[in-house]
Design a protein around this nucleic acid. Structure first.
Lengths: 354, 354
DNA sequence: GGCGAGCACTCGGTAGGATGGAGTGCCAGC
DNA sequence: GCTGGCACTCCATCCTACCGAGTGCTCGCC
């Protein structure tokens, strides 16, 4: 399995990246067929494929060549061929044309966004469900990180004589809250006064950049409240950058594999928010929109492929869409769904914000 | 499978609920053994069990009786016996003593609550992970419904010239938000004024009970803002009662069954928040803390059992804990974990609020 | 009357062997 | 360079036999 040796985007190696037309057609047919049947495909099934038009013997010799070059593999002698990760990669990069979503799916997306409402979190949550429905994959939606979103407003609401709730509204409409223990009984007047001072002091800065002290008033009681709030803000700041993750349709992983062990290990990964978010980020940072099998480097997901798509609001990156399926997932469909939903979601979120 | 005919709690039927001591011991041993081995258990394996002390032939005749009475069943002739739902029920009600959490688990719980911090949502989320770790089941934690939690404060924060964010803080410290489209450009002054009117008008009432109109000021611009907010409040009100659900450790369902189909159907249920929340509520309303197999009436979960435990804050019900596992789950352990975590969580949440 | 030893019986799981078929690699010939 | 033909491989399936775990039943014993 040394297929992932140097698959860089440079195209430098002496081996030509582009296969001879017929071999490409054969690879294409193998991948397509295997994606839909999940069965190793033999030479006989390929003679009718477009672009092939040779006898099965010739197909066999081409397939043997494709296997030598690492695009195909055999589960065992005298079985058909199955694509390798490299085979899928070539398919995704050179063979799969830019697909459209099927009409039913398009209709579904249109209806979804026509009735879209509510706040961003529930929007993202429901989007993950939509994507799972469209692609039969597990869908992941990562919300914006807010790491550098400036504070728009700070309020303090008294909950009990010595407990207040610090409510921070960020410029994009997201809300953070943190309860604050106060040293002394404090009435609403004083809380409002403290909130005013805090707002002036913090306005326009992201939460993580608010430093320890939060201004003074000269009044010792109010200053006590402010000090307590500084601690709460620090807590919020340290949580900042922890993007929200919404996973939809994880049950589809159970349909994708028949080994229950595989299902378990994949689900275990999906439960680890940090791992998933990092994985998506990592793939995106490498400039990929598809990561196949070993390419993403998460061992328990070796038999999975990942499709990622950034979400942007007003040009700024504001989240990520991810689709997880078996390596024999329907790439064109998944890419089309991710693109369409990503675009619609991006423009939907941009619209709401103005 | 007519085992669930009349299992009411009345105890009315002529058949005595209590089994003869040896049969009870045998049932106990079968359940215990089957829980730990997942294999049908035969008469030979039971002769050494405490309270049995008879030959395997006698055990066999007792087992045959237990099967006639519906407590046991055979996968096929000449296999050992497996408990039925009724068998598990008897085990839970009469045989399983009140168990303690094992020391390792107790330690884990102690550490968890010692370092507990953050807001209620993340607290509940992490609690679901803790419970899954403790019991090897899938854990569900349902937050409070807020249906009747009074409004403590309402604020309006301008996000764009014609968009404001309505931020509603409830008396228990939870926060609702909803963006509001405004008909005209509105400055912060006017928003603050509208928020003041709104707060006065809504204070102390739950969101769902805020009626259409939200007061007037005489000033047409402010009244326009108020009208827009009334719509937003209605939206929030209609979402009220939709409790938050946190599911942890769903990957454990893949380890619990070896039929991948079962795993898929169970996971599909777990993805439907409303179904899960309703299920937990339903079981709790029937006064049960354990629902086994067919007892809970959700067909795809027929091979699962459910342990539920209410969470209360200051005496008022404030959520639910649920554990989902195969019917051969470790009931004593699950009950102990649910009880301990539920108690600790209840008192933790009560403490924070004062 | 309840209990236990003995016995015949059942049936799932496993191992061995035969068979068929899908698929391959190779080669000679067009 | 492609194709038809051929020998070969190996999985999947089926059948059979067989072992063993487990049962139900009966009869004798205390």
């Amino acid at each position: 399995m040394k297929t992932a040796d140097d698959m860089g985007t440079d195209g430098g190696p002496s081996e030509p990246e582009i296969l001879d037309a017929r071999k490409a057609a054969i690879l294409n047919a193998v991948v397509t067929e295997y994606i839909s049947s999940a069965q190793p495909v033999g030479s006989q099934h390929l003679v009718d494929a477009p672009g092939v038009a040779v006898s099965s013997a010739t197909v066999r010799s081409d397939m043997a060549a494709l296997e030598r070059e690492g695009y195909l593999t055999q589960p065992h002698t005298s079985a058909g061929r199955v694509p390798t990760d490299k085979g899928y990669r070539f398919f995704v990069d050179h063979l799969a044309g830019p697909a459209m979503l099927d009409p039913v799916g398009r209709q579904q997306v249109r209806r979804f966004f026509a009735h879209a409402h509510g706040e961003i979190e529930s929007m993202l949550e429901r989007t993950s469900g939509l994507l799972a429905d469209l692609t039969d994959c597990t869908a992941m939606v990562v919300g914006p990180s807010h790491e550098s979103t400036p504070i728009r407003s700070i309020q303090l609401v008294g909950l009990a004589p010595r407990v207040a709730l610090l409510v921070v509204v960020l410029a994009d409409g997201s809300v953070r809250k943190q309860s604050v223990e106060l040293a002394a009984d404090t009435d609403d007047e004083r809380l409002a006064e403290a909130a005013r001072v805090l707002t002036v002091h913090c306005l326009g800065r992201p939460v993580a950049q608010v430093d320890g002290e939060c201004g003074t008033t000269g009044d010792p009681d109010t200053d006590g409240v402010l000090a307590a709030c500084a601690g709460a803000l620090a807590t919020l700041g340290s949580e900042e950058g922890a993007e929200q993750l919404f996973v939809g349709g994880s049950s589809r992983m159970a349909a994708a594999f028949d080994a229950v062990d595989t299902v378990r290990s994949v689900l275990t990964i999906l439960e680890q928010q940090l791992v998933v978010v990092t994985l998506l980020r990592d793939v995106l940072d490498r400039g990929l929109s598809v990561a196949i099998g070993s390419e993403h480097g998460v061992e328990p997901l070796a038999s999975c492929a990942l499709v990622v798509m950034p979400i942007s609001v007003d040009g700024a990156e504001a989240g990520t869409i991810g689709l997880l399926g078996p390596t024999r997932m329907n790439y064109p469909q998944a890419l089309a769904a991710a693109r369409v939903v990503g675009d619609r979601l991006s423009s939907h979120l941009s619209e709401v914000g103005r």
